[in-house]
Simulated assay, not measured.
Amino acid sequence: MSPTSADKIAEQLAAVPELDASTIGVFAGVDGDQAVVNLDGNQLRVPALGAHWPIVGDGVRLLRVGKTYLLLGPVKQRATVGKVLTAGSPRCTVEYPPGSGVSDLMGYPTNVTPAVGDVVLIDWQGEAAGTVVAVVTAAAGQVTPVPPPPPPSGGSGRQTFTAIDSGSFQGRWWTNKVYASASNKSAFFYGSKVGDTLPNDAVIDAISIYLSPERNSGNQPRIGTHGYQSNPGGQPVINNLVSLANASGWVPLPTSFGDQLKAGAQWGVGFDGAGFAIFRGTQQDGQAGALDITWHT
């Protein structure tokens, strides 16, 4: 039977990359045509969707599409209207927005001489600071937001938790890479952010880990949970071990792992004693070991 138009539309929609929950990083600069963003101790180079670069040090929102992060823009928009506190050349001191107590030195057009008390328009395009683009007689009025409707009972969430550190132990912690082998115990560490974020009454719908293998051979690697927010210094204990038939890309994990992590009974995941796989660590891949968790309450 030939496919219907509805079947074709469904196939096209299935091919659209999945959009994951956004996360917050810090803008660190520009490398060619990519933004450099610090995220949980890792430095990523990602495409930017905005019309101009954020300012270095800005909190920025990232969206993962498939295996790629995209920079959407700054988390907090800066005020575009300010008031001149002190005149000067080549910069004047501008408070933004007026009455906030927050001020900065800003340049201005050569055909304008801002005076104390002037209301000015600010352009934030650039990597260092804002620039006065015009002196105006008054700022535009603000529209009062419409209050939101009351939230429904219950809720759901999805978030990606990147690892803050990783490593392998063989008599000592000897590499940032994560080895799944008979002679190593290894782990990804996340601090306390997974347990701090997931509600205690959350029902875990799905949990996956991002694995970036340099080598994947031998028996199936065994992954489990551990009780460390950071490197314990000594040999780690890996609990709740299961074997992974596939250990590349986004790999599903038992939802029971999420139950352990949400309650703080365990804080991360690791490998113990099977296979001979070598996975990139946090120093080689900013997404290495990232956990993608979906839940509802």
Rank of each mutant, 00 (worst) to 15 (best):
V75E: 14
G117M: 08
T175Y: 00
S166D: 07
G167S: 10
L71T: 03
L105S: 11
T144L: 13
L62E: 04
A187T: 04
S103Q: 08
K177N: 15
Y96A: 09
P54Y: 03
R158N: 10
D118T: 04
A187C: 14
N42T: 15
V132M: 04
G82Q: 03
S153K: 07
P149R: 08
R78S: 08
M106K: 00
P151S: 12
V133Q: 08
S186R: 00
W174S: 14
D58A: 11
I164S: 00
P114V: 06
D40L: 12
N176Y: 05
A48W: 02
A48L: 08
S168E: 01
P90D: 06
T93E: 13
V135N: 03
H52K: 07
P98W: 01
V143Q: 12
P47C: 10
L44G: 00
R158H: 13
S186K: 00
L105C: 10
Q43I: 15
Y179G: 00
V94W: 01
V116W: 02
G101W: 04
L49E: 14
I55M: 13
V120W: 02
P145T: 10
L71H: 00
P74A: 15
L44M: 15
K177T: 12
K177G: 06
T80L: 13
G66W: 05
P151I: 11
K76P: 03
A128M: 08
G141N: 11
N42W: 01
L44P: 03
L63I: 13
L39S: 01
V135M: 06
V120T: 06
I55K: 07
A129G: 00
T175H: 03
T93D: 10
A163H: 01
A140V: 11
A163T: 09
T175R: 02
G154L: 06
Q159M: 13
V60T: 06
P109T: 06
Y179L: 05
Q170C: 11
K185L: 11
A163W: 02
Q159I: 13
P90A: 09
G117C: 08
Y96D: 01
V133A: 06
Y96W: 07
D123K: 08
P148V: 09
Y69E: 13
E127L: 14
T86V: 14
T144I: 14
T175G: 02
Q125R: 15
